[in-house]
Computed example of a mutant assay.
Amino acid sequence: MAPGAVRGARPGSSALPPASPPLWISYPAAGIELSVLPLTPSAGELRAGSLVPPTTMDAYWLTNYGQPGSGSSNTTYIAGHSWENAEAPFNRLSGQSAIGDELSVSTATGTVNFKVLSVTTHDKDTLRSSNVWNIVPGQLVLISCYTEDIQGKNVIVTAVPNP
């Protein structure tokens, strides 16, 4: 998705479990308690920089990228829906996420705790070329539609391990 992605460095931590696919996300401040299912974007979706998660009440881990935990080789991306006038998994991500929030992602090898570094919005048509796709091992990025402009913007929550 990001042809010019740069490799970032995050110090490893022995307190983290080994990198493994995410199974559950807990983000109390945003009211998110969800199972995380794998989603493998097609080559066409990756080229287009666009994907639409299945319309379920789950969160989706983009399998083409990183996994949370020690030894991760890329950013971990988890996406979920936000809908207008209806309940959706990530509706509160737009209005209730804040820098400093704590969240956790559970995997088969353990739980990784994260601290939110930023909450931003991006235009949907420029998201694919943004720095959101930079390779930063260990980093977690949550992506959804921005509830105040579902059609035009995405909300992006970026977090790092908080052992």
Rank of each mutant, 00 (worst) to 15 (best):
L127R: 06
I25W: 01
L142G: 00
L46G: 04
G71Q: 07
S130Y: 06
N91K: 01
E87G: 14
T63M: 06
M1T: 09
T55M: 14
Q96F: 13
S118L: 13
Y146F: 15
P53A: 09
M1F: 12
Q96H: 13
E84H: 12
L39K: 06
P28Q: 12
Y65L: 11
M57K: 11
P89T: 12
R128P: 07
S104W: 03
T147S: 15
A88W: 01
T126E: 07
A30M: 07
N131P: 07
V116K: 03
A43L: 14
I25Y: 02
S94Y: 01
G8S: 08
F114V: 02
L93C: 06
H122S: 09
E87P: 12
S26C: 11
T121W: 06
E102M: 13
A9E: 13
Y27Q: 03
W133M: 02
P137H: 04
L46F: 11
G12Y: 01
V157C: 07
G100S: 09
P54C: 08
S118N: 13
A108D: 11
T107S: 08
A98G: 10
W24N: 09
L142Y: 06
P11M: 15
G12W: 01
G8P: 03
I25R: 03
L62H: 01
V36H: 01
P18N: 09
S130R: 07
A19S: 09
T147H: 05
S14I: 13
G138Y: 00
G4V: 08
L127I: 13
N131C: 11
R10P: 05
E45Y: 07
T111A: 06
L51Q: 04
P68W: 01
S129D: 14
P53M: 04
L117R: 11
G4D: 13
D101N: 08
T56W: 05
L23T: 11
T147Q: 11
E87L: 15
T55P: 12
V52T: 15
L16G: 00
S106Y: 10
E87H: 13
V119F: 05
Y77H: 07
K153T: 07
W83Y: 14
T158V: 10
L46H: 05
S97K: 02
T158S: 13
S42V: 10
A29L: 08
Q67W: 00
L16D: 00
D58C: 06
G110Y: 02
A15L: 14
G31D: 05
I156D: 00
S104D: 08
N64M: 10
S42T: 12
T76F: 03
P22C: 08
V119I: 08
S144L: 06
V160L: 11
D123A: 15
H81W: 04
G49I: 04
